[in-house]
């Protein structure tokens, strides 16, 4: 029994079919609990008032925007090294989800920033990094769409993902250097001293869990769709050939 067994498309679909309902329901429950708890049962911040509550969307989506790219990077590496098709398709499936997460993070950031900083957009390093990440996602998706041969597309996008990751990291540091920014420090860290207060912390954790589960569910679902589309095309090709 090895992890690589799930690289078989049929096995992947069978397994994810079994776990997908569970993950989906847990995502719904976590999101509902986290968001309702966060929005209605936490006190207003003494400085930021009720606007602070957008944190329950902003922080999880921002986390997932980055983690989706990391997941694509790992999946791309697996494709390059072991050439498992499911891996390449999972990377492809994750990209649009990552784009949406990035957009949510940017939009909620703007909405949060308006009352706090008095403007919808500032060229703050964190916001700017996310904008750059958004561009990287767009390029990656556009390259997938542009190439006809599936294996070639997987090869090229994997290399783009690798190179892009290096440059995305460089951009992050470059942007930090370029503008010190208004953004507050990380909302969460392992070092408990710096964290937001407990009342905000626990609902935030729940809603992060909800976002993670939602991401996993969406990626599973989209990967299944990609696999089925590929299978349909393969079958049609066989029909034509026969």
């Amino acid at each position: 029994m090895s992890l690589w067994e799930y690289a078989n498309p049929v096995k992947f679909i069978r397994t994810t079919d079994r776990v997908l309902p569970w993950i989906s329901w847990m995502a719904v429950i976590c999101l509902a609990v986290g968001l309702i708890w966060g929005f209605f049962f936490t006190p207003d911040d003494f400085r930021q008032g009720s606007t602070v509550k957008i944190i329950y969307l902003h922080v999880p989506s921002a986390l997932m925007a980055i983690n989706a790219w990391l997941m694509m990077l790992v999946a791309s590496l697996i494709w390059i090294v072991r050439r498992h098709h499911v891996s390449a398709l999972a990377a492809r499936a994750a990209a649009p989800v990552g784009v949406v997460m990035t957009l949510i993070a940017l939009a909620t950031g703007a909405i949060w920033g308006q009352p706090m900083w008095g403007t919808w957009w500032v060229w703050d390093p964190r916001l700017t990094s996310f904008l750059i990440l958004f561009l990287f996602y767009l390029g990656y998706i556009a390259l997938w769409e542009a190439i006809e041969n599936d294996d070639t597309a997987a090869d090229l996008t994997s290399i783009l993902c690798l190179v892009g990751s290096v440059f995305a990291l460089l951009s992050r540091y470059a942007v930090n250097f370029w503008n010190q920014g208004l953004h507050q420090g990380a909302s969460l860290s392992l070092d408990k001293e710096e964290n937001v207060a407990d009342v905000f912390y626990f609902p935030l954790l729940v809603s992060i869990a909800g976002f993670v589960l939602l991401f996993v569910a969406l990626v599973f679902l989209r990967t299944q769709t990609e696999i089925r589309a590929r299978r349909a095309r393969a079958l049609m090709a066989r029909e034509r050939a026969a």
């Binding site: 750059i132 892009g164 440059f167 470059a174 370029w178």
Partner: peptide, 13 residues
Amino acid sequence: LLVLPLYVPTLIF
């Protein structure tokens, strides 16, 4: 579209 994001760090520095 592919190259412009890669140009960002070079441009900034």
